[in-house]
């Protein structure tokens, strides 16, 4: 059933911000039409909040909204069940449960490709099995899957590299895409925030948090842009080499359980070692279980090192005034403190 016109829905939320280039390239190489939901807007948020269970964190609620937005217009939804993406580490349980939670809430719900991705023991085999399964669900097998996988991997690695150099956003602009109502991402770039090249006299600030928070401009209330407007030059976890992050994590007495938590913790640990970093902002979602532990741990290490640390918690009720006051006060404090 090789249907060239198969429409596959990809919600622009959560792991989209980590794996979009891989996923989009893979499906497109197989000749599938990939439909990506538009950047989060009020309609999507309201939709998500009304469908989701009350105790979920905001990014999960947003994911419901994106899925519901796509539900009526696609033949199949791609919501992989990410259990583990690397050895001995896991993804948050709320995210593992997404396919089931969505089936229960979104009515009518198109079929969901909910391939389990589990690399906790044997990463290579786990990934291979997952790729085979997800392609097999819509009737693709053999060589073409293999070559689609290679193309996806190549795009992905190239994208990671550009992220590290802080140039991953290219020409893609989230806001203009949303204004045009563009549902399909042609380039496959999730429109990431550009860490601007250094300007003389600007303050270097580390901005850490989950990519699905930071890069979702609606959710994060465009905090990266706000920081820049206040004279900050930001470094994101994606801008740091992964092995540097992993190395920094080794100073912890115990290995962290969560993949994303390690990323945040490792980023903070390696940023506080850099004398040029004036302060660190940690963006977190209200109700995020892993962050409640990781964030606190990160703050303690930062404090020990004497690096100013600002925790910003985002929720659906968050008013911009409160966030602005905290950011402004933080950015006010940094230069005085830094030069003192």
């Amino acid at each position: 059933m090789k249907n060239k016109k198969l429409r596959l829905g990809l919600p622009r939320a959560l792991f989209y911000y980590y794996y979009a280039p891989w996923w989009e390239t893979f499906w497109q190489a197989l000749g599938v039409e990939v439909v990506v939901s538009p950047p989060t807007n009020k309609e999507i948020m309201d939709l998500g909040v009304s469908l989701a269970v009350a105790e979920a964190c905001l990014p999960v609620k947003i994911y419901y909204g994106h899925t519901a937005w796509l539900a009526g217009q696609v033949d199949v939804l791609f919501v992989p069940r990410l259990v583990s993406v690397e050895k001995k580490s896991f993804i948050c349980p709320k995210l593992m449960g997404l396919p089931d939670m969505l089936r229960a809430a979104v009515k009518p719900c198109p079929p969901i490709i909910d391939t389990v991705i589990n690399c906790v023991r044997q990463p290579q085999e786990g990934l291979a099995a997952a790729v085979e399964d997800m392609a097999g669900r819509v009737g693709f097998r053999g060589r073409e899957v293999q070559s689609a996988r290679e193309a996806a991997q190549e795009r992905y690695l190239c994208w990671l590299e550009r992220q590290q150099m802080g140039r991953a956003n290219g020409a893609t602009d989230l806001t203009s895409a949303s204004a045009a109502g563009a549902a399909v991402s042609e380039t496959g770039k999730p429109g990431l925030i550009d860490s601007a090249p250094a300007q003389a006299g600007s303050l270097k600030v580390g901005l850490v948090g989950h990519a699905y928070l930071i890069h979702d401009r609606f959710l994060s209330m465009d905090i990266p842009a706000k920081v820049k407007k206040m004279g900050g030059e930001i470094t994101l976890p994606e801008n740091l080499p992964p092995d540097q992050i992993a190395l920094a994590c080794r100073q912890l007495p115990k290995r962290l359980f969560w993949t994303l938590g390690q990323k945040i913790m490792g980023s903070v640990l390696s940023l506080i070692e850099q004398d040029s970093i004036a302060g660190i902002i940690h963006l977190t979602a209200f109700g995020c279980g892993p962050d409640s532990l990781v964030g606190d741990l990160a703050e303690r290490y930062a404090r020990r090192r004497g690096t100013p640390f600002l925790l910003l918690t985002i929720d659906e009720h968050t008013g911009e005034a409160g966030v602005n006051t905290r950011l402004e006060a933080f950015m006010d404090m940094l230069p005085r403190r830094y030069s003192a």
Binding site: F286, P308, T313, G322, T325, A329, D332, M333, R336, R337
Partner: peptide
């Protein structure tokens, strides 16, 4: 410290 704001906190939600 020494007349400079070095840290602050506000109530959360």
């Amino acid at each position: 410290r020494q007349g400079v704001v070095t840290d602050f906190a506000m109530n959360t939600v």
